[in-house]
Design a binder for these strands. Structure first.
Lengths: 263, 263
DNA sequence: TCGGCGCTTGAATCGACGT
DNA sequence: AACGTCGATTCAAGCGCCG
């Protein structure tokens, strides 16, 4: 029974799951958005330092990811920020940096206003505070093993603003330039959330996979250790890749499977 | 001679300068963009660990800033990112966090493309690399002493997307909502840079000062320990505030003074 | 007994979206 | 057009603990 774990979401803890189910270096791309505060049993010893334990747990996840990722693979780690929670995203990213190299930092822009240009796009998330600015940003840290993975930047390219640049350089054969590290993707709206309370949009996962490059391996397998409602699996399926994932919560698991069937 | 240092840029090292010239708690707002690699004498002992020394030096700067800043003052720290330089901005910010609280993280968006909406704004900075995305982002870390400084969010507000919100709440008297933490400010163009090779746009410094709130103190003094070509001083002057700063390089100092006279 | 903490808890709040 | 909904919200009051 070779690869009988392909296109499966397992209801188990992701660290145990990855170690038990996935062979070394079998995964080409990991896209994930870890949950904020679960996965640790605080009941006995650790009740005083939950965040420190959470960090260590994240380090363990990173290590397990390292084992299963291909040497030329990519790991995309989505992390939000809370103004009241200093450097949270950064500290988690540093745990991953114990094993991986941070090759790119992508900024997911959910909302931006440019009054001068009459631009005012995206869902604006209210914050009731006189000291904190409304946060409309999340990080996507791009980790690789050596920091030298070749990317397919034009796969998620955008048209040139100045069309005279087309044909100006030998690589500029089409009206397509790299997108840069600022990615605008709007919030899911309330209604969309009701149907699929996804941690991040399918489109975001799609962009990560395409940026890594689709033509690299066979079989091309995308992993999400925290599958949640299945956005990563959906993106992989849409792009013709295999997926595999783990999710403890049976309700989320069911939701993910429903979304996959529908698609 | 009281306050004879107002509206002055001193040609000296900023740590020595701040300690010598500025009284405790005399400054209301600090806006600064530290240089990348100067300020340390590598010649004798430290040749093996330049970045570590740079970090320590940044910590010393932070400490000197802490002394001169008002208890309800704000420090805006602008830091760029290099993809090849892992977590550089965060590590510097953490040095400041030894003394200050990180109250907000602002993202300076220099360029963003949203092909779906045919939006493609800002100067696109080409990068010849197959592994690194084009970086069009810098951080502005907002530090305060206790993390509880009240801001004037509407001073840099933007119009509502949904006008039916105007008048809906008692504070919403005008078509103005908070801007959030994503600030679009375009690159200075090459031509502008030739005239004033500024580390950051005057507009950015203006927005920081206005966000802190202009009605807070008299005299309202804005400090930049690394004055460079004088953007912070220019912004302060434009807004009717006093400025003070330090700059080692005589050529930059001269440039800053020229820009201030012109304005 | 009073006051200053840390933690918990409920109230208030914002702006876009949907009806 | 007006208004109810919703948030990996924030904020301040309240309680218990300790000096």
């Amino acid at each position: 029974m070779k690869n009988n774990w392909l296109d499966t979401i397992f209801q188990m803890d992701c660290i145990k799951g990855m170690n038990a189910v996935l062979p070394e270096k079998s995964i080409e791309v990991i896209v994930t958005s870890p949950p904020y505060n679960i996965g640790i049993d605080y009941s006995v010893y650790h009740d005083k330092q939950p965040f420190k334990d959470y960090l260590q747990w994240m380090g363990d996840v990173a290590q397990a990811c390292y084992r299963v990722l291909n040497d030329k693979g990519s790991l995309f780690l989505n992390l939000g920020d809370k103004p009241s929670d200093e450097f949270r995203a950064f500290k988690i990213a540093q745990e991953f940096a114990r094993f991986f190299k941070l090759q790119n930092t992508i900024h997911w822009v959910k909302s931006i206003a440019i009054p001068e240009k009459k631009i005012n796009i995206g869902h604006y998330k209210p914050v009731n505070s006189e000291r904190y600015l409304n946060n409309s940003h999340e990080y996507i840290f791009h980790f690789t093993k050596k920091g030298d993975v070749i990317l397919d930047k034009l796969a998620i390219g955008v048209p040139y603003a100045d069309k005279s640049n087309i044909g100006r350089w030998k690589h500029a054969k089409q009206d397509l330039r790299g997108r840069g590290n600022q990615w605008f993707i709007p919030y899911e709206t309330v209604q969309e959330k009701k149907a699929h309370p996804a941690a991040f949009p399918v489109k975001l996962a799609e962009m990560c996979i395409k940026l890594h490059g689709l033509q690299k391996k066979e079989p091309f397998i995308v992993l999400d250790p925290f599958m949640g409602s299945g956005s990563t699996a959906l993106a992989a399926k849409k792009l013709g890749c295999h997926y595999v994932g783990f999710e403890i919560d049976p309700q989320y698991l069911q939701l993910a499977q429903q979304r996959l069937e529908k698609q």
